[in-house]
Design a protein around this nucleic acid. Structure first.
Lengths: 194, 194
DNA sequence: CCGGTCTTGGAACGAGCGGTCGAGAATGGG
DNA sequence: CCCATTCTCGACCGCTCGTTCCAAGACCGG
């Protein structure tokens, strides 16, 4: 009964997420978004509201399409320690100078916006809780299997691993050297050893 | 032989550093700087150059007045483990919801700018190397004294502690809860135990 | 094949951005 | 005391920001 949209909102949102992921909130202009989402300015505003609302939608989308799968992957079968070390080592491996990985959108947003945007803070906090709990779950499984020492609670270890992940992201932004990241991850994983 | 400046450049720079520290580079306008530095716009430009140059000067100043003393404090006398745990625990303690601590300017800048500003990246990388080496030094001392196990090299532990510090800063931005930060720091410090 | 409804494109808005400029005030050497 | 020099002040520059608006275009039920 009326003209249909010429674009897929989900895809456009995914592209917006990519831009925010790469450049951050402040450094991304609406023109950047228009260019990279491939839609018109008016369509952007009528579909997603203003820049801030679009950013919130991008955070939610990130939570679904990046954080979610990562946490799910943590529940994969196999030795718990290998699941965890696999995640950390894959991040070190992916950090080549050429790739210029954008790190983690939640980490970036935590640093850039959390202190002056409660809506962002709420989403970031929830995301990190989810990651912590995902880690805690696999740690508990590893402890039950006798792989991981029980001197620390799964909850504490989960929180530690979540924070250690944030640290890794920051380090990899600041320092391209794989040696530094390898040393870091090696010590992080050593807390799971007897 | 001419009219002298009515302000102390060092003090003005310190105030600029505070603003950048609190709000980040992009979110700080020149007007913000003019207001908070207490000097005129033209004085700002004639003394510090453009916004980018001023930011670089602020980074250098931060390195001197914040990073430097912190690294020095790491070389204080007393049991090495207590020196390290004191640093971490003081950051947890300082993180009350009311204080709204601005975290670490180097961490913030690493996340916000490192990927698109080589001059920032250089300063951030150097700063983190300094912190890593500071940690490594006190770790080595602790190992020689038999306080800290020697299963990991001082260099690796130094790099780990530096990264763990970044993680702590991000966590404290994202989550006001002291329980989370305490759990995190507890596990971090556990790698220094036998 | 028309009419109503929604999308699209692009111009335009005021506000604020980073940065500049010229006139006037304040200084200290000669 | 005077003048060259420097600093201070606020207006002002062109530009880009996020956002709005409207006319033209595209669609589909009737």
């Amino acid at each position: 009964m009326a003209r249909p949209k010429e674009f897929e909102p989900q895809i456009a949102l995914e592209r917006a997420m990519d831009v925010f992921w790469r450049k951050g909130f402040e450094a991304t202009s609406v023109q950047d978004l228009v260019n990279e989402m491939g839609i018109n300015r008016a369509s952007l505003y009528s579909t997603f509201g203003d820049k801030h609302s679009l950013f919130m939608a991008a955070l939610d989308r990130y939570s679904e399409s990046v954080t979610g799968p990562m946490v799910e992957q943590l529940q994969a079968e196999g030795p718990a320690k290998e699941v965890i070390s696999g995640l950390f080592r894959s991040l070190v491996g992916g950090t080549r100078a050429s790739e210029a990985q954008p790190g983690c959108l939640m980490t970036n947003s935590a640093v850039e916006l959390c202190q002056r945007c409660p809506e962002t803070a709420e989403r970031v906090t929830k995301s990190m809780e989810r990651v912590s709990k995902g880690f805690a779950k696999v740690v508990a499984r590893g402890q039950e299997a006798g792989e991981i020492p029980t001197s620390q609670s799964p909850r504490a270890l989960g929180r530690f691993l979540c924070g250690a992940l944030q640290g890794l992201v920051v380090l990899s932004k600041a320092n391209q050297s794989r040696a530094v990241l390898s040393d870091y991850v090696g010590v992080v994983l050593s807390v799971l050893e007897t």
